[in-house]
Simulated assay, not measured.
Amino acid sequence: MTTNLSLNIKRELYQVCVADIQTRLNTIKATIFELDQALLSETKSSAGDKHETGRAMIQLERENVGRQLAELEKTQHILSKIDVNRTNQTIGLGSVVITDKMNYFLAISLGEIRLEHTEYYAISPHAPIGRLLMGKTTGDTIAFREQHFEIRAVL
C-alpha cells in the first residue's frame, strides 16, 4: 500500500471516530441542558413529596448524564493523541492493522466502519484483541478466541 493511500485510510477512519464522538457529545450536552432547565422549572406544588421525588429523579438523571459526558471527554482526549500523519512499523495507538481475517483501527471502541467496500473495526488498545495487537509488527501472528491472525500490514 502506498504511503498516501495508507494515510488517507487512517485520516478517514479518524474522522469517522471524531464525528461520532462529536455527535454523542452534542446529544449529551443537549440532554444536560434540558435536565438543567427541568430542574429550574420545577416549582413547589401542593404535593410537596411528589415535587421532591421529581427533583430527585431529575437530579439522578443529570448525574448519570454527567458521568457519560466525562467518559466521552476522556475518549475525545484519547483520540486527540493520535497523529494521523504518522505511520509506525510497530502497532500502537492510531495504527491501522491489516490482518488476513479483519482490519483494525486502534483508537476508540466504535465498532465497524466501512470505507470503500472494506470493513475496519475501530477498537480500543485496551480491548482484549487490542492488547494482543499492541507492539506487534507486520508478519507477526496473534491468537484470539481460537483463531490465528497474521498481521499483513501496519499503517
Rank of each mutant, 00 (worst) to 15 (best):
A47E: 13
D49P: 15
D49R: 15
D49F: 15
K50H: 13
H51M: 13
G54S: 15
R55L: 08
R55P: 10
Q59P: 14
E61S: 03
R62S: 11
N64C: 11
G66Y: 07
R67F: 07
L69S: 06
E71D: 12
E71R: 11
Q76H: 07
I78C: 06
I78Q: 03
K81G: 03
I82S: 07
V84D: 03
N88E: 09
N88R: 11
I91T: 06
G92C: 07
G92N: 07
L93Y: 02
G94Y: 01
G94T: 06
V97K: 00
T99L: 05
M102N: 11
N103G: 05
F105L: 02
L110Q: 11
L110N: 12
I113T: 08
E116F: 13
H117P: 02
T118S: 07
Y121D: 07
A122P: 13
I123A: 01
I123F: 02
S124G: 07
S124I: 03
P125Q: 12
P128M: 06
I129E: 00
R131Q: 12
R131M: 11
L133M: 09
K136W: 00
T138I: 03
T138N: 00
T138C: 00
T141F: 14
T141Q: 11
I142M: 01
F144E: 04
R145W: 09
H148G: 05
F149R: 00
E150V: 15
A153V: 07
A153I: 05
